[in-house]
């Protein structure tokens, strides 16, 4: 839109007795209606989750006979059945292991790449940057077939091969790192560009090396950005589904999201729904607790993903 610059019109002066309209009966009715809409959506959001949590404490016969009732007594043993018999415990540990490797590595490597791309001029800088950022638009599905073989062939590497390959949590974590780098680099490059040059200069004058400047000055200064993108990656890696489905097919190697989905199919046949729901609650509670505790940062981290 072409903006024609013209002197601003004098602001209309409201009369002293002019009170905002809109406290009449009609307005109050609309206010009430608005409140109702909001409440209805809140119920639509929470009731399925509440139903899952309540169902996790029921017996299987209660689950079928009284879908809306409360459990007669809390059947806590559902949880131990889910944890051991249904393998949710194993899946949970697997997920923790993968995320514990993948997220710190994503942050470190992403910050290193973003830092040099943001603050050092060298031939090929733009090519590397757009190479990373371009990865954001590519659907992961296109890569699945070759990725499967790339990962499978890693096990043939001498020495480290035994820790890699399919059904290896290290491999899966490395794949997570690779697929998280585009957004992480994109986000952190923007962040490192905002760091004042004067501090870098001062550090160099004080005899700081390039490495020291990064690890002792720049990285600590980038903490707010690292926290946002870190939470974004924790949730993304914890919830990832298609990559483990392709790369992890041994039953005891599955991660939580994948194992839960497999359980939903097998428990349905066995008729042990409440163990499944207990598993569901085991999977969703940690994430909800982390979210409620850090909701400001989580919302900032996730919405930043769209706004950038």
């Amino acid at each position: 839109m072409t903006v024609v610059s013209s002197p601003p019109a004098p602001a209309p002066v409201a009369g002293p007795e002019h009170r905002p309209p809109g406290v009449g009966v009609g307005e109050r009715a609309v206010n009430l209606l608005n409140g109702t809409f909001l409440l209805v959506w809140a119920l639509i959001t929470t009731l399925p989750l509440l139903w899952a949590i309540v169902s996790a404490f029921k017996s299987n016969s209660e689950f079928l006979a009284e879908p809306f009732g409360l459990p007669g007594e809390p059947h806590v043993e559902n949880f131990s059945r889910a944890w051991t018999v249904a393998n949710i415990g194993q899946y949970f540990v697997n997920s923790v292991v993968v995320v514990a490797i993948s997220v710190p590595l994503t942050m470190l490597l992403g910050a290193m790449a973003a830092y040099v791309l943001a603050r050092y001029e060298f031939p090929g800088n733009r090519i590397v940057y757009y190479g990373f950022v371009g990865g954001m638009i590519f659907p992961v599905f296109l890569a699945l077939v070759p990725l499967f073989f790339v990962v499978r062939n890693l096990s043939a590497l001498p020495g480290v091969g035994q820790f890699l390959g399919l059904n290896s949590h290290v491999s899966l974590a490395l794949v997570y790192v690779a697929f998280s780098l585009p957004f992480t680099v994109f986000f952190l490059t923007a962040f490192f560009r905002t760091q004042p040059t004067s501090i870098a200069e001062a550090a160099i004058v004080d005899g700081c090396s390039h490495f020291g400047l990064f690890f002792r000055v720049m990285l600590p200064m980038a903490k707010p950005g690292l926290i946002s993108i870190g939470l974004f990656n924790v949730l993304g890696h914890w919830n990832q589904y298609v990559l483990p489905v392709v790369l992890m097919n041994e039953p005891e190697k599955k991660v939580l999201a994948q194992g839960l989905a497999a359980l939903a199919i097998s428990q349905g046949y066995r008729g042990d729904w409440t163990a499944l729901f207990a598993g569901l609650v085991i999977a969703l509670l940690p994430v909800l607790v982390v979210y409620v505790l850090f909701q400001r940062q989580v919302q900032a981290g996730l919405t930043a993903g769209v706004l950038k």
């Binding site: 990373f132 590519f138 585009p182 390039h210």
Partner: peptide, 26 residues
Amino acid sequence: YTFVVSFLLVPVGIYGLFVVSPYLQA
């Protein structure tokens, strides 16, 4: 340049191996 290369080597390597090369192969 030593610094730039040492910082880019691993991220670009992992990214190239698991993301760029699969897309091109596909």
